[in-house]
Design a protein around this nucleic acid. Structure first.
Lengths: 123, 123
DNA sequence: ATTATTGTATTAAGTATCTAATACAATAAT
DNA sequence: ATTATTGTATTAGATACTTAATACAATAAT
């Protein structure tokens, strides 16, 4: 698990985003058990309080479930995860297109650029 | 000029980004004069110190030029702007594709989604 | 010459974030 | 029953960001 934390934004929000990604991609499968707060904090080289804060938010959002003394698990509700994943994807795309438009790129131009970059990635 | 400032990231970085976009899109043409720090701060509903900080960074990057007592202007160097714009665009695309990939989307799938969203935007 | 405007610097205060060091309660493991 | 592990809460300190209120120096405008 490559934790990629930068200092330009609050760490706990970056933790939230990266754990979300791991849930969406299946790196943490439905119903699977998460490591303890302390372990996750240590792995991410972060204070336990900070990791706790991120996990609390994810629980608030319904993605993970807390069992008072036996740790946390990913929700079993696959549909909810699917919905959250789609929502995040659409937000990403919207923000991205909006920014490119503000930079002065034409829509067709954007598609062309992405197309060539995707082809580049396939190599 | 719609200043869109959120509280999830430092305001001065958001100011930098948005002024960059205005330069790249031509909203601030080459060589044109910028409003004073105080005016820009008021327009963005931000403290002058914060705007000053953003402008200082943009000057450090060479995008704007400071004339001690007569204000600031956008650089005349169109090529430099073009380079900075291309660099930003590539960063945007890379980050975006990387995140979508982490979420578990296939590359062709991403293209399909964007294509449909772009068509949607054209309406 | 005087005034107004420009960028810049300083000091203080408030807030948010992060870390650190503990401590507590509940319960799984033994 | 005892121990270890779990999530959770608290307090304190450090740092970064933001605002506010000024002040200064240089020079354009008058």
């Amino acid at each position: 698990m490559p934790w990629d934390l930068k200092s330009d934004r609050p760490i706990y929000t970056q933790l939230i985003e990266q754990i979300e990604l791991m849930i969406f991609s299946g790196a943490y499968p439905l119903g699977s058990k998460l490591p303890s707060v302390r372990d996750m904090a240590q792995e991410a080289a972060v204070n336990p309080n900070t990791m706790q804060r991120a996990l609390a938010k994810l629980e608030e959002d319904g993605l993970i479930i807390t069992h008072r003394t036996s740790g946390r698990t990913i929700t079993e509700d696959g549909q909810m995860i699917q919905i959250a994943k789609t929502k995040l994807a659409q937000e990403q795309i919207s923000e991205f297109l909006e920014k490119m438009k503000l930079m002065g790129f034409e829509q067709t131009e954007i598609l062309t650029i992405i197309d060539s970059m995707v082809k580049e990635m396939k190599k």
